[in-house]
Design a protein around this nucleic acid. Sequence first.
RNA 1: GGCGACGUGGCCGAGUGGUUAGGCGCGGGUCUGCAAAACCCGUUACACCGGUUCGAUUCCGGUCGUCGCCUCCA
Length: 451
Amino acid sequence: MLKIYSTLHRGIVPFEPRDEGKVSMYVCGPTVQSEPHVGHGRSAVAFDVIRRYLAWSGYDVTFVRNITDIEDKIIAAAAEAGESVETLAREMGERFEDAFVGLGVLSPDFEPEATKHIDEIITLTEVLIDRGLAYTRDGDVYFSVRALESYGKLSGRNPDELRSGYRIEVDESKEDPLDFAVWKSAKPGEPWWESPWGPGRPGWHIECSAMAEKYLGRGFDIHGGGSDLLFPHHENEIAQSEGASGTTFARYWLHNGMVNLGGEKMAKSTGLVVDLAPILKSHGGRALRMLYLRAHYRSPIEFSDVLLVEATEALDRLDRFRQRATPGVPDEMALDRFREVMDNDFGTPQAMSLLFDLVRDGNRLLDEGGDGSAIAGAVETIVAVLGLDDASDPAAGEPALTDAEVDALVAERNQARSERRFDDADAIRDELDDQGVSLEDGPNGTRWLRK
RNA sequence: GGCGACGUGGCCGAGUGGUUAGGCGCGGGUCUGCAAAACCCGUUACACCGGUUCGAUUCCGGUCGUCGCCUCCA
């Protein structure tokens, strides 16, 4: 029985999908305004693992991850770069795509872009106006927070608390400072689309409301995103969607924790950012994934070079076992334990613990000459569900030495060893080490592994 | 100020009312020409102060500290 933490419920609750055997998921993807960083990667990996696990558990999963490609920040960034909004959004979208692929994140079933759903957005906005939940002002459309009684139910805030003592730049055209834009009239030089309220563009939250309903329908199962989106973004999505439909928008809300640098949140605004691309290149996507998965997805995690190295070492240990053992029919007890920890709000840290317990058990068995295939099979299964399998690392480079060349050098070294020319043997070993190949001399000969 | 999360051993990071998380590191050992790997043994902690309890790291209250959201943000 799967139990998940839902921000809306403020606790761990049993997961009951809208439709038997199916899961519909919508995850807030990037606003394509700048380079993807390690924080974006964490969110993508967190929901990728959740998705993979649900699918492995037998659910038919429909996974949607949007791209917000029109928004104030993108307009500003494009202006600064002297590019068109469209060009910048496309470029950054590609960077995100590359990074996600590098992290072994599976492609969404749908990846809708805001600018391709203007009609749906306009239709939804009209409904909000008809229902008295939104109003127009000089070509803008605002959502009237006070018109919706349930406003604040996700984030646990009420309008009165929000209002008191806040230094919001009060926009005189709004009826209430808390009201937010659903549609913004175009300023000179900005991209625009025709609408009943004049030329303009969507506000920030409306695209998710419109696209989630289009691809998943009302009352879909899981809505995910970073904890920093909880308010106001997700709160406003709910307000718009439930205000318009009068029914549940999403059943469960999941939020991943932030990535910190030196204890503080990684964020573009503070300059505390580590871009994904160089990390993927230097350490590979699997190492980063390992770093992410060692902590629970809801906890904040620290990122540093030292931690990345630690994760890499842990991954190496796992890989050494995987290269050593031949997988067979998975050990059922191990898989049951895996289900148990994952069914408890996707406990990847416990899954990692289990994985390394299996590695130790498997190694011991193999050392004793036993059959490690069942354990190895379980390890392979778990590794695949966590996305730590080799298929998830397309970035694995072409080796400098071919297998045949390595074999030849190993044979040459062993010849030297048998003649007790150990200096020569060690020289070859060093050479191979430089090429990223490590050797292990055992009773049955020498094994070699690429690092 | 409001809402929320958290303070665990050298580091990272789970978890639990009473029994070894796990990883990395470190020390010792087995094995080995040496090394590496693997295995074995050791390194054993829960911010502080009260309370509840036979017993609290785990529950309750308080103190201190850290962080997130309240403005764009994965």
